[in-house]
Design a binder for these strands. Structure first.
Lengths: 336, 336
DNA sequence: TTGAAAGCGCTAACAT
DNA sequence: ATGTTAGCGCTTTCAA
């Protein structure tokens, strides 16, 4: 007793019209007499007809689905962007195919290709580093791609970000104003552009502005790890040994780790050690003391990225292709 | 200069074979002479041919994509399941269309139907409550559905869960053993079966086992809210006013809220107030004191759900359709 | 305003 | 081992 699928043909037949007409009413084409429209609509309801999106996709060359490449859904930062993406996608009647990449180039490329094979109308890419190989892949397809919360130093693809350089620089400057001289820079791997070419640059800029000499020793580029929290926790000892009194940290989980690690060593936050973190995920408000942070409009980064993508997919011309959204510095209790 | 798509026909033509043969090599059919296989493979590489998954889907009636309905990707509990789902999906060469529902019946049904229109081969549903309407929708399609981390009191669909009744009951029993008589039950809305028919049942069972009379006053059914954390924080006052000394809480964010709320009122955890939470997301380890919790194998719930779904999609017969995975009680620092 | 018909790119019998 | 061919269910000219 297999479920017999009802097709556009069945509807056309029963309603005594052509498939073309049924197609027109289904797609809201106005060139249909109200009378016939209603007749067709009736039959559609009777037969419980549901258009087959795959057939439609083949015929029209549009699937109304976009691919979303994400390092890890479980990462609050990217999950927040993803939520913004999906909401706007839904608003524009798109669905998203979500694929985790673990931020590994190999997986990213693999998944990009399967997404393209599935004929997605567009792609939103999130990742910590755009390698040359990846950039080449992006350029070899005509499917529009937008980067969300991810920098491409060459800016070959449209992107939505905040100004990481300025944000970090401001944060570090604040830390200096609070009297800190030995400020750690703690981020993900330094071979990732976002860390070395943006955040670290902001850090160095703020230091030089304040006539503090840059000290390599204070720069912690964390190798990628499953559990950034744990890494942060263990980092505390080294921070203490180096007589560091403050840190700008690029990831909230990492920052929470450092926070707890320091507390475990009886270091008082913020009296003896100040922390500013970078992503302002809800985590920052759940720990004590609450973490001061660069605020990013996470949801909006995703939302704006998706909106931009729809524009490009519709061949509308766009003014800015590399958009920087506003950030702020939120002082909570991990800074003086 | 539009990108000319190369089709199976182009490959067949250039390789001097039929489309069928190309199709065979692409799909790894063994009925091809190594010689011709290589010839075809060569042409595929030269032409950079990539099979069109949409056309394939239409012809074969399989899309190798499954729909995943999730309340909110931003919720650590569901995000963890989603990660398990995607990993196993990828392993079986499936992609997932992820759709947020906010746990609203209307959205759930809507999104279910668009997923079906897209001809997904299967669906994994996550949600806090299976209403009659939803159950009816599930039953009206022949597309296999598996529930992940979501109970259906009628067990009409296959599902992966833990034994919430036993888990909560054990947790509450522990709390009693620690000397607590006034134990709060704090969960999501009580009109959701998972709360009223499972968790609350476990709570009541443990109480009666210990000859403690059930007190309605101690039951907090939190209406759905955007920010459970905040709600938890505010709950503290009421908890104190009611002279409650312990709580079993069904959501980690909520539990963190309660924890911080109590601390803000100078209540010592766990000396004056004990907390056991339920989902064991990484949050539990990031707060201080760390939260004791029912441990759920979150990733595995998703992974097992997806594996089960692949079996059903392959028409393999399955032994258990309502699977309960193991849970444990992890004592951390929010209990004595 | 409506219909006829040619694909969209592929798979899956069925032949050979 | 390989080829032929008829769809899969829809959109989209083009004509009427």
């Amino acid at each position: 007793m297999e479920k017999q699928t009802v097709t556009i043909y069945d509807v056309a037949h029963k309603a005594n019209v052509s498939m073309a007409t049924v197609s027109r009413v289904v797609n809201g084409n106005s060139n249909v007499k109200p009378n016939t429209r209603n007749k067709v609509l009736d039959v559609i309801n009777q037969l419980k007809y549901h258009p087959n999106a795959v057939a439609r996709g083949l015929a029209s060359k549009k699937t109304t689905t976009v691919g979303v490449i994400i390092p890890d859904v479980t990462d609050m930062y990217f999950a927040s962007l993803a939520r913004g993406i999906d909401d706007i996608a839904a608003m524009y009647k798109y669905n998203i195919i979500l694929a985790n990449s673990d931020g590994k180039e190999g997986k990213e490329i693999h998944v990009l290709n399967t997404l393209l094979a599935k004929q997605v109308d567009g792609i939103i890419f999130m990742g910590n580093n755009i390698t040359d190989k990846l950039r080449k892949q992006f350029q070899s397809t005509s499917v529009p791609i937008v980067l969300a919360g991810s920098v491409d130093i060459k800016e070959t693809e449209p992107s939505i970000n905040i100004d990481y350089i300025k944000a970090v620089s401001e944060a570090v400057n604040d830390l200096v104003q609070n009297g800190n001289q030995k400020i750690a820079f703690i981020s993900g791997p330094l071979n990732q552009d976002i860390n070395s070419k943006y955040r670290l640059k902001g850090y160095r800029y703020a230091l030089s502005k304040n006539h503090i000499t840059y000290d390599q020793q204070l720069v912690y580029g964390i190798k990628h790890s499953d559990d950034l929290y744990k890494v942060g926790e263990k980092l505390a000892q080294s921070l203490i040994d180096n007589h560091i009194t403050a840190a700008i940290i690029s990831d909230d989980e990492l920052a929470v780790g450092v926070l707890n690690g320091m507390k475990a060593h009886n270091v008082k936050i913020p009296q003896d050690f100040e922390i500013i973190t970078s992503n302002d995920t809800k985590l920052t408000r759940m720990v004590r003391p609450q973490l001061s942070s660069i605020t990013q409009p996470l949801y909006d980064i995703g939302a704006v990225a998706m909106r931009l993508l729809t524009k490009i997919m519709d061949n509308k011309k766009i003014d800015d292709k590399n958009i920087l959204l506003h950030y702020r510095l939120v002082k909570r209790d991990s800074t003086k």
